[in-house]
Design a binder for these strands. Structure first.
Lengths: 156, 156
DNA sequence: CACAATTAAGTTGTGCACAACCAATTGGCC
DNA sequence: GGCCAATTGGTTGTGCACAACTTAATTGTG
């Protein structure tokens, strides 16, 4: 673990940079494709969860997306302002806010069906390659999350 | 290209989500490790370029990082406020601003040397795997950039 | 030289990510 | 009933990403 330390700081050797660049390149492609739908990229991800689950509290939505309320609250307000979702306090638990699709939000799903194939085409990868890369990234995310937990105080 | 369209909208099938999640997981680990250095993650990336090239105009820095002046200007101001860099108009071309490391900024490199191995450890991957994943992501970024260009007006 | 086109930074506005903090509700406890 | 810890959302502040626009300097062309 004590090799050519000089090269370790080279930008083009940093996996984080490649990952960041790829994520932002994706963002750029999504921006173009989603413009028609009037959605941003994170808004689209939130809509994916809603299309799949129909209705769920903010907490659950955040667990699926790995986002906290500080990010979701304003995002959901914008989706509500766009008429795609409604937010209402749960009657059972007044602390919880249910997010549910409006008719308009539900209808948007039809137009969203064309998004994934266009994205897939833009990647230049076939379905198996996408699947394999996704699995690798998910393992990486798991390892990083685990490391973040153990790294927190002063271990290392 | 017209198969089980229902599944295409499932969040867990979206490569973009895995990529985003991995990038943010990286951000979290970097946040912890860089706190000692007083740098954010994008600031660290900018410093990597400066440590490698010593001094360069904002334009070149943006090309290395794939960032525009709208992102870099405030970021560099914060680095300047932290005493790590100086910005000065080029005498040759008054439009250009040279960014150069201060002594303090140069000295910080020593402490930054410990960052990559700690990050590498957090990924749980060996150097070959990191390298291979990085290459794959770079190809993906290239394909996405190319697609973004041809997608711009209404092709597809 | 004059002038249009280009280029480099910066500014403004929108939206996302996250930490830190706050308010309200709930549920267990005495 | 009254009290307290945990949970759920929300708010605020900082920083990044990017589009659109502005300003100033440079370059190309007649």
């Amino acid at each position: 673990m004590t090799a050519p330390t000089a090269d370790w700081l080279r930008l083009d050797q940093q996996i984080c940079f490649s990952l960041n660049a790829a994520a932002r390149a994706f963002g750029g492609v999504y921006r173009l494709i989603l413009k028609d739908l009037g959605l941003t990229y994170p808004q689209y991800l939130a809509m994916l969860v809603l299309w799949e689950h129909g209705e769920l509290p903010v907490k659950k939505l955040g667990e699926h997306l790995r986002l906290d309320s500080g990010t979701l609250s304003p995002l959901l307000k914008r989706l509500e302002a766009a008429g795609l979702v409604r937010r209402e306090r749960s009657a059972r638990d007044e602390r919880s806010v249910q997010v549910r699709l409006t008719e308009e939000g539900t209808a948007l799903r039809e137009r969203a069906l064309e998004v994934p194939p266009r994205i897939a085409a833009a990647t230049g990868l076939d379905l198996d390659e996408i699947s394999e890369l996704r699995a690798r990234l998910d393992r990486l995310t798991g390892a990083l999350d685990a490391a973040a937990l153990s790294e927190t105080p002063g271990c290392a």
